[in-house]
């Protein structure tokens, strides 16, 4: 087992506490910056690329149109079926 020589005058706990302050400060600084940048980014993107920003909606509207025509065809088929059924009686 490697033993790293630690001079006795170093207070390990004080060192550890210093690490903690530095570490937590960096982690929070990083994440707060991230939150800030992400909010800004979302605003900018939604302002300048609104069409690209919501491609799912564009697709959805085209998707929605096809079921409509399907519905018409379905309604037609059902009416035709009912007609033939009534006629056969």
């Amino acid at each position: 087992m490697k033993k790293r020589v630690v001079p006795m005058e170093i207070n390990l706990v004080a060192e550890g506490l210093k690490f903690m302050v530095l570490g937590m400060a960096t982690v929070f600084l990083f994440l707060i910056l991230l939150v800030f940048v992400l909010n800004l980014q979302a605003k900018i993107l939604n302002k300048f690329f609104p069409q690209k920003a919501i491609p799912t909606e564009g697709r959805r509207s085209s998707d929605a149109s096809s079921p409509k025509s399907d519905n018409k065809a379905l309604v037609a088929a059902i009416t035709a079926a009912i007609q033939t059924f009534r006629n056969s009686k």
Partner: peptide
């Protein structure tokens, strides 16, 4: 994201 930061306290607390 801040919650993900706070949880890192475990790392430094244990170090101490």
């Amino acid at each position: 994201a801040l919650l993900g930061g706070a949880a890192q306290f475990g790392i430094f607390g244990t170090l101490v």
